[in-house]
Design a protein around this nucleic acid. Structure first.
Lengths: 222, 222
DNA sequence: TGTCAACTGTCAGTGGCTGTCATTAGCCTC
DNA sequence: GAGGCTAATGACAGCCACTGACAGTTGACA
């Protein structure tokens, strides 16, 4: 019986150790800062050797992105689930909004949502974390471009539009993340509103002449 | 007489040491790889102590971006020099193209253009360098947003359009850089063509329905 | 020419990270 | 349920990026 996938005590302990390391690390990072936290402190809190830590995570920074990875695949899944009649950019927009609505379900198995939001804010405000974060975003964009191309039945290496569309979208997402991290309201609602209002500004920003002043309003910055 | 700014022997030696470190580092990085090169190797080639290296550069990665910084401010200068009647995105586009045309003048005081291009390619293909590169690009975008806002007589913290326009532009720039680095033609010409053709795709990518197939052509990827 | 300040070298030490090897502990078979 | 197999861990040594402290050297300038 249950030939499918039996956890097994070994697997369970591994998962437990990994989650404990993530929780301890994020708690330490968000309270005393990323660079002020040593790997020794993290492993001491979980009571494992330093060597074990580096068997679970390739480096100190990787543990900071463990939950981010969950959130990202949550978002990609949302994009995949969009009805195919939606134009690409509308699908992307609705997917972000939807995945922010349900982010708790995807994350709270490991850490409370509140800690995840604090971690996000930490990443945005810590150069040593922001850098790898942006690199991760770039590979996420490549994945998204392939999803979009598939949706539209196009070859991502022949037709430039999927990658360009995702690049435009990604540019605005990074902007909103930055402004969210630099602001004062670290709630999911603030993120949603910022996202929506800045995506509304894509058209106006592309206009030839900004001085006609059309299409403004709705986006309040900082 | 010449009260303005007299180099002085001290300044001269400093500049000499710094340039020598940059040249040695980039040469080593591009021939044997960034992570395969130790700081000890660099300082040995220039015959200074390791401590001196870290007095000139905050870290091993900073030396890799020394020339990039020159190229970036060259580009910002080009944007500032654009006639004010050009729409924002056209100004940005013409500024990139122009600064690629004259990049040699800005760079060859320190290293041959060819080494700079090899370095650029190295950055794009080395995760440990790509990450800080993207972070640098983000702060460059903030600077550009302020320049654009000034051009248009707007407040960058009130009107979202300058930042959105720069984010869109920056998204496409990162895309073209990535494709250039992943391609096979590492020439300036290849960069120029890639840039032009992908900027042409912004309109088409924003179109509601891609299947009408309008506005395509001109951009050949990979 | 002598004094000051800037620049540099040496040394010791910390922290992130890796290879190696012995030990422990879940798993599976008889 | 005793044994062997192997994954997981711990302990230790060592590399490399980076820093603080202190001493030595060398332009700058009176």
């Amino acid at each position: 019986m249950d030939t499918a996938s039996r956890p097994g005590l070994r697997e369970l302990k591994k998962q437990r150790t990994r989650d404990a390391l993530v929780r301890a690390a994020l708690e330490l990072f968000t309270t005393q800062g990323y660079e002020q936290t040593t790997v020794d402190e993290i492993v001491e809190a979980v009571d494992v050797s330093q060597r074990t830590f580096f068997r679970y995570f390739a480096g100190k920074e990787e543990v900071a992105f463990a939950v981010q990875a969950t959130a990202e695949s949550h978002f990609v899944k949302a994009v995949r689930g969009r009805p195919s009649h939606e134009p690409p950019l509308e699908a992307l927009r609705r997917a972000v909004m939807a995945s922010w609505d349900t982010i708790g379900d995807a994350v709270e198995a490991v850490i409370p949502l509140e800690l995840h939001l604090r971690t996000f804010q930490l990443i945005e405000s810590t150069p040593a974390l922001l850098a790898p974060h942006l690199r991760r975003q770039e590979s996420l964009e490549e994945e998204l471009a392939r999803v979009i191309a598939e949706r539209e039945g196009l070859d991502v290496d022949t037709d430039p539009r999927p990658r360009v569309a995702v690049a435009l979208f990604g540019g605005v997402m990074r902007l909103t993340s930055r402004l969210w991290g630099a602001g004062e309201d670290f709630s999911v609602d603030a993120m949603r509103e910022l996202t929506a209002s800045y995506l509304d500004q894509v058209g106006p920003a592309l206009a030839e002449n900004w001085h006609t002043d059309d299409g403004r309003g709705g986006a309040d910055a900082e």
